[in-house]
Simulated assay, not measured.
Amino acid sequence: MREYTEKKETCGTICLKYLLFIFNFFFWLAGGAVMAVGAWTLAEKSDYISLLSSSTYSATAYILVVAGVVVMVTGILGCCATFKERRNLLRVYFILLLCIFLLEIIAGILAYIYYQQFFPVSPQLSLELKQNLKNTMTQKYRREGEESVTSAVDKLQQEFKCCGSNNYTDWADSLWIRSPEASGRKVPDSCCKTITDLCGRRDHPSNIYKESGCITKLENFIQEHLKIIGAVGISIACVQIFGMIFTCCLYKSLKSEPY
């Protein structure tokens, strides 16, 4: 009976080891995906961050990058701890899993919080956000020390085929448009459907994106991207629960080792 019990425990341990190894393999791949989403947000869309009134969006992306790196390192540690059957390594692995779990939950919560900030139920708050974008574009565009805003506005108007926050008339309040530096432009050249030097002097619909404002398109972009960030963070965090359960079971099935 004793031999049967020991054999049963050994088989259970082997099953747990392979389950944990399979989990770690997919967990490592998931870490790469998390890091890729965060890095893509910062590398490809970082210009738009300067147009937003909150730093929560960028903070969420940074958390995902850090979590992704730690996940990949943790996945390797988990494989080593599993096959060497070291309880001390399993403890470290479990703690790292728990930390990553909390990081990804925080990233998901931040994405949700920012979603509520950017798409509030109150029409008045939404109006304030729209006014903030207009002020950023008209007060900081082409101003000294605001090169990142200028680059972001130009990229936004060209990529989303829009002009101004609500529409092209917003540029009438621009400090730059009113200055001699604008050379008679009515809108920035980045509002033009085909960019040429001084094309912003002519505000005809055939020349500029006259009726298309950027605020709605920026809102749609942020909305969709926040859904991706939140879903990735929360989904992988939920999967990690199984990893922590497997780790606890394997830890208990192994005999104590001297340090």
Rank of each mutant, 00 (worst) to 15 (best):
Y18H: 13
A81Y: 15
E146H: 11
S183L: 10
Y115E: 14
K217I: 01
A111N: 01
I95F: 05
W176Q: 06
G12T: 06
K8L: 12
E85C: 03
I236L: 14
G75C: 07
L64W: 02
E3P: 00
R142K: 14
C162T: 04
M137D: 05
V70K: 00
A67Y: 00
L175H: 09
L51T: 07
G200H: 12
L110M: 14
L156R: 09
S50F: 13
K17D: 05
S58N: 07
G184N: 10
F27W: 12
F119P: 00
Y93N: 03
E44G: 10
M137W: 09
E128R: 12
I95E: 02
I195F: 03
C99H: 03
D173R: 11
S46G: 13
E9M: 11
N132F: 14
L133Q: 10
I22C: 12
F246S: 01
I105A: 14
S206N: 11
K17N: 08
L90Y: 11
W40H: 05
T247K: 12
R87G: 03
H225L: 09
S174E: 03
N166L: 07
M35Q: 14
Y93I: 01
V239W: 08
K17T: 06
Y57V: 03
F21N: 10
S122K: 14
L89Y: 14
R2G: 14
E6M: 07
L19I: 11
M244Q: 12
